[in-house]
Design a protein around this nucleic acid. Sequence first.
DNA 1: GTAAAAAAGATAAAAAAGGTCTTTAAGGGA
DNA 2: TCCCTTAAAGACCTTTTTTATCTTTTTTAC
Lengths: 135, 135
Amino acid sequence: MELTRKGEYAIRGIVYLAKQPVGKVVLVSDVADATGVSQTFLAKIFQSFAKLGLVNSFRGTGGGFLLGRPAAKITLRQVVEAVEGPIMPNRCLSGEGMCTREAECMVHPIWRKIQGEVSSILDSVTLEDLAKEKK
Amino acid sequence: MELTRKGEYAIRGIVYLAKQPVGKVVLVSDVADATGVSQTFLAKIFQSFAKLGLVNSFRGTGGGFLLGRPAAKITLRQVVEAVEGPIMPNRCLSGEGMCTREAECMVHPIWRKIQGEVSSILDSVTLEDLAKEKK
DNA sequence: GTAAAAAAGATAAAAAAGGTCTTTAAGGGA
DNA sequence: TCCCTTAAAGACCTTTTTTATCTTTTTTAC
């Protein structure tokens, strides 16, 4: 029931991107320095983002990363799920007939409810919100 | 963001206890057989319960376990936290001055909200609820 | 005293977390 | 064309956590 470091770093990294002027391309190394995360590890995280289109990347001189779409169109849930996988408080919610007890299981609906609540909270926050300075 | 097997087994085991007639003492081995969990592993889990008073135990011949208080007075949260520790979606919520970014951190309040929601859902369910047969 | 049962602690295999390193591919500029 | 820069991809590694098992000790009833 805990976010891993990967998830933490992912958020820090992409929020840093969201704070840049629109269209500015930044190096992983810069993001790593600014957020205090190892460059190679952060690079892996950004690769996951790139596959999902959360960020765009450019190789070579002058390359780097920027957001794949406006910060207002990227939710915290998308960021977290990109590196941690689906919000899934209990294995049996993954379906695939794994939970043979589902029929009698009274606990099942509780996890489903938690899954729904957590997902909806994470869905309600965008990178635009997170990029604002706290006042 | 996932319940471990220990948490799953804990719930299965204590719900089985809650389904027994009030006052009936049952062996770990019986609970283990009924729930499909290894006996020694379940014994460890029940030891955690016993330390917190969620169950009472008796050693020796005729010994075993029963609920430490009425099923209606034991919440799902207490059961989960007994084996998994506090509901804590993000390390920085643990306080202890760990989160040096708290002042500027816009993400912090989100985790706090999730923590609150999850806790309150788990608090709202008792073993009495879970021991009912699904209809 | 002996058998039954939980308590406690040591040990260990397997999986996940948390990284690093090396090689490859792509792009820009001299 | 040849470097240099930078991300992509994948192999590799270490540490921690999970998921147990096994043994010994303590407690209790008979």
